[in-house]
Design a protein around this nucleic acid. Sequence first.
DNA 1: AACACGTCCAACCGCTCTACA
DNA 2: TTGTAGAGCGGTTGGACGTGT
Length: 267
Amino acid sequence: MAQEETRKGPWTEQEDLRLVFFVGIFGERRWDFIAKVSGLNRTGKSCRLRWVNYLHPGLKRGRMTPQEERLVLELHSRWGNRWSRIARRLPGRTDNEIKNYWRTHMRKKAQERKRNLSPSSSSSSLCHPASPTTPSTDSQIDVVLLSSESDQEEKDKMSRENGSSIVTSSTATPGGEEISVQDEPKGYYSMDQIWKEIASPEMTSGSLDEGCRSDEPVCSFSCPPMPSPIWDYRYDVDALWTMDSDELKIWHPGGDLNVANFHHGRE
DNA sequence: AACACGTCCAACCGCTCTACA
DNA sequence: TTGTAGAGCGGTTGGACGTGT
C-alpha cells in the first residue's frame, strides 16, 4: 500500500488551522493520534512541536522584556540548559524561544564580557539576589521569591533527601512584574561562575545541572495571555465550533468527521 | 546593487523519561 | 520486571531577514 510520505518543513496556514482544530477537539495529548486523525501527513512529534512553540494560545510573542531577560539569566545560572524548566517560569515563552534567545543574546554578551574582563576583576555586575548587601546595579536581578504548590512538593522532597530547608525572600521589580526565585540551599552557581562557564570553550551543557536541580523558583509574571499569530488574526477560535458539517468536511479529507460525536469540553 | 555577516526562529533529530499493559 | 508507545527535552540545523560595507 502506497503510504503518503510524511511531510516535513514549514507548516502552511491550512495545516496550522487544521491542527488547532483537532487539538481543540482532542486536547493537547495523543499527538500521534491527532496527527493521524487530522489527515496531516505529519508526525505526532511535529504536531506537538508546532502547537507548543507556535500555535498555543497563551504564547507571548516579541522580544524578551528586561525582566524576562534577567530571569532567564538567573534561572540559567541555577539550572543550566534546562530550557523547558526555565520556560515554565516564563509564562508565554517556550523552551525553544528561550533556548534561541540564550544562544544569540547571552553568548554574545558573554563574549563581550569576556573581552571586557580584566584578569584582576573578580566581581560581577550580575549580583546574586541572595546577597542583600550587594549594591544594586542596572543588571542586578530583582526577584520576588515565592513558592507554589508544585515547588513546595519539590522542596519537601529535597528537604527529606537533604535535611535542608529552603529560605525564601522577596523583592519587587520596578516594572511591577513579579519574578520569583528561591534561594538555593546548595549547589548554587553564582553569576560569576556562570559567566566563567560561558566564557570557557569547554563549557558543556550538563556542567551546571549537577547539584542544582533541587528546587524551582517560581515566576508569577502577571503577563496577560498573548495569542499566537494564528489565534490572533486568522479567526475567532469559537468559529470553529460553529462550523457546519460541510465546512468540517473540508478540514477532514476523509469526510467522515462528525464534530457532534466529540466531546470537546467547551462551553 | 551586491555581497558578507550576524541575528532570529521554526523545525528536525535523537535521546530520555514516563505510563501502562 | 520488562517491553512498548507516547510524550518531553535539549541540541542542532538551515532559511529568512536585517544591517553594514
